[in-house]
C-alpha cells in the first residue's frame, strides 16, 4: 500500500510545484500540468483508500496515517470542485502544498499492525464511516473558507490602502473569494450538523448518552455555533466582506482545536 501512496505523493508534489510556479509566473501551461497531475493523483489516492478499506477490513480513518491521508483526499476533492465551479486556480497554490505534506506524513508514518485502541464497536457500526467522512469533508470545506477569507483580507487591505503588491494581481476577485467562502461555509456547516447528529445517534445507541463533555465535542459545538452565527449574520444583517472573512479565519482556528485539540487534551474521541 505504501508504494501506491508514494505514487500519490509524487503526483501531488508535481501538482503542487506546478501550481506554485504557475501562480508566480502566471503561465497557463504550468497550470495544465498541475491539473493533470492532480487528477491522476486523486484517482490513485481514491484507489489507495479503497484498497486500504478492503484489505484492512476497517474504514480507512483510524490510525494517524489513514486520517491524514483521508484528510488530504477530502481537500483535493474540495479543490477539484472549486476548480470546476469557480476556476479559482490560485487556491491550489495554497491547498496543494498542504496536501503534499499531509500525504508525505501519511506515507512515512507507521501504523501499528493490531492496535489495542481498535475497539470492536468502531468496526461494527455503519455510523463510523458516515460520521467521520461527513466531518472530514466539513473540515476541508472550512479550510477552503479559511483560505478564501485570507485571500479576501489581503486584497481588501490592499484596495483600502491603495498599494498593490505582487500577490494582488494573482488572486481571484473579491466577489469570487467572497462567494467561495460563503458557499463553502454553508456546505461545511451542513456537513458538520449532520456529522454531529450521526455522532450523537451513534453515542446514544452505545451507551444511551448523547453528550460526553469530551473536548472534541465541546470544540465541535463551538465551531458549529460560530459558523451558524456567520451564516445567520450574513443573510440577516448583510454581514459580508472583512467581518465575515475574519470569522472565517477564527472559525478555522476552532476547527484546528477540534481536530488536534482532542488528541492533546485526551477524552473519549482519542483513537490510534
Amino acid at each position: 500500500m505504501r508504494s501506491l501512496l508514494l505514487a500519490v505523493l509524487a503526483a501531488y508534489v508535481v501538482a503542487a510545484i506546478h501550481a506554485v510556479l504557475a501562480f508566480i509566473n502566471k503561465r497557463r501551461a504550468l497550470q495544465r500540468v498541475s491539473e493533470v497531475a492532480l487528477a491522476m493523483g486523486f484517482l490513485l489516492h481514491t484507489g489507495a483508500l479503497a484498497a486500504d478499506w478492503i484489505i484492512d477490513g476497517h474504514y480507512p480513518l483510524f490510525y494517524l496515517r489513514e486520517t491524514l491521508s483521508f484528510l488530504a483526499w477530502t481537500l483535493v476533492a474540495s479543490y477539484l470542485l472549486i476548480l470546476y465551479r469557480y476556476r479559482a486556480r490560485p487556491l491550489g497554490t495554497f491547498i496543494l502544498p498542504l496536501v503534499s505534506v499531509l500525504v508525505f506524513i501519511a506515507a512515512v508514518a507507521h501504523s501499528p499492525t493490531a492496535g489495542p485502541t481498535n475497539p470492536i464497536a468502531v468496526r461494527d457500526t455503519w455510523l463510523f464511516p458516515v460520521h467521520t467522512t461527513l466531518l472530514f469533508f466539513a473540515y476541508a470545506a472550512f479550510f477552503v473558507v479559511f483560505i478564501a477569507s485570507v485571500m479576501y483580507l489581503l486584497q481588501e487591505r490592499e484596495l483600502k490602502v491603495k498599494t498593490f503588491g505582487a500577490i494582488f494581481h494573482r488572486l481571484p476577485s473579491l466577489t469570487t473569494v467572497n462567494e467561495i467562502a460563503t458557499s463553502s461555509a454553508a456546505i461545511g456547516l451542513t456537513l458538520l450538523t449532520v456529522g454531529i447528529a450521526t455522532g450523537m445517534i451513534w453515542a446514544s445507541s452505545r451507551d444511551g448518552r448523547l453528550w460526553h463533555n469530551d473536548p472534541k465535542e465541546i470544540f465541535a459545538a463551538l465551531t458549529w455555533l460560530l459558523y451558524v452565527s456567520l451564516i445567520v449574520y450574513r443573510s440577516s444583517a448583510g454581514w459580508r466582506g472583512r467581518r465575515a472573512a475574519w470569522m472565517g479565519v477564527a472559525g478555522f482556528a476552532l476547527v484546528l482545536c477540534t481536530f488536534f485539540g482532542a488528541r492533546m487534551m485526551g477524552g473519549y474521541h482519542v483513537f490510534g
Binding site: L159, F168, P172, S173, T175, T176
Partner: peptide, 8 residues
Amino acid sequence: ELGKKIFD
C-alpha cells in the same frame, strides 16, 4: 482593472 479585482 481595479473594478475587475472587486467584481470579477
